[in-house]
């Protein structure tokens, strides 16, 4: 029951622009990667690129990097959970 919400962290515009550029770059990569036949790794590649973008948005645009550590832990746990669910689903698709 901490009261850390009172502290506001201001992110410089330069950092925000860098993050925006990284997001656009990842978007172009995710389009470019569809030109290659990656077989079962197609979904993995798309998910990894999407995850990088999500992490950037969470960390910088949503200020998670500068917030209470507990939130970071909870969100990481959710990522692991969803990763595990996808992994188990692919035990069906890869071995069917």
């Amino acid at each position: 029951m901490s009261n850390n919400e009172d502290k506001h962290h201001v992110i410089p515009y330069r950092t925000l622009l860098l993050v925006l550029s990284a997001l656009l770059t990842f978007t172009f990569i995710s389009i470019a990667v569809t030109n290659y036949e990656l077989g079962p790794f197609t979904v993995l590649a798309a998910l990894l690129l999407a995850s990088f973008k999500t992490i950037l948005v969470l960390a910088y645009f949503m200020h998670l990097k500068f917030d209470v550590k507990m939130f970071g832990i909870l969100i990481s746990a959710v990522f692991i959970l969803i990763g595990a669910v996808i992994f188990i689903t692919f035990l069906d698709y890869l071995y069917r």
Partner: peptide, 25 residues
């Protein structure tokens, strides 16, 4: 609450999933 996320496949044992998935579920 945690393990409950990973057992959904037991509703689908006869649906045509892979053998590996069947064992795991």
């Amino acid at each position: 609450a945690f393990v409950g996320y990973f057992v959904w496949g037991h509703h689908m044992f006869t649906s045509g999933m892979s053998g590996t998935a069947l064992y795991v579920f």
